[in-house]
Design a binder for these strands. Structure first.
Length: 193
DNA sequence: TCCGTGATTACCT
DNA sequence: GGTAATCACGGAT
């Protein structure tokens, strides 16, 4: 399926389909291993209460990055993804650095390689993403080859750290991958494509 | 387990 | 207008 078509689906549909995709930005490429979906009718979504200056990118065209700043020190990045007329996005929670690893190490200090992009704020940091990149589409996203994707075992479970809507199982990750963040209460979604 | 750190929001006046 | 609680986290302890 074409990437542009995928980005016009609901985020919880698209998120498991872009696991294993390669995202390149700021001189670093990561293979995405963990994602969370934030849909329009979703109390956990930043966009749930309507458009504000912070979340306006989620209401714009799919395929841009929605970047926000949280806990006074961290940036997190979402891939905007939604059907026409609805806000939505996919939080990039973790990845494996597959290119530009030296640059990622510089940005991340003394972290072990497996921790370079393990966690949403770590991933954003490894890619050099901050608020200045909010709304950008200056990145590349290459879907995993079909054969490679069919080898991935997708697991699903509740999202992390939400007060609202904690029960929607809209967190998706590559089962067994060491670059997935620590919190993993899980059930298996499927094996192979 | 604890806590830094600041934008954003919810709820007042 | 003001103010307090919250927050899609990470690193040190």
């Amino acid at each position: 399926m074409l990437l542009t078509d995928l980005l016009h689906q609901r985020p919880e549909v698209t998120a498991p389909r872009i696991l294993g995709a390669r995202l390149s930005f700021g001189g670093v490429t990561v293979r995405l291993t963990e994602l969370e979906a934030y849909a329009a009718d979703d109390p956990g979504s930043h966009a749930f209460r309507g458009k504000t200056n912070r979340n306006r990118v989620m209401f714009g065209p799919p395929g841009h990055l929605y970047v926000y700043f949280t806990y006074g020190m961290h940036h997190c990045a979402n891939l905007v993804c939604h059907p026409e007329g609805e806000p939505g996005g996919i939080l990039l929670r973790a990845g494996e650095v597959v290119d530009g690893i030296e640059l990622a190490r510089e940005r991340r200090g003394s972290a072990r390689d497996v921790d370079l992009a393990r966690g949403p704020a770590r991933l954003a940091s490894a890619l050099g993403i901050d608020l200045g990149m909010n709304g950008t589409d200056a990145f590349e996203l290459d879907l995993a080859p079909v054969g490679e994707w069919s080898q991935i075992e997708v697991a699903t479970g509740p999202r992390v750290g939400l007060r609202l809507a904690p029960d929607q199982p809209w967190r998706f990750w590559v089962a067994g991958d060491p670059t997935v963040s620590q919190y993993r209460p899980a059930k298996k979604l499927r094996a192979n494509g």
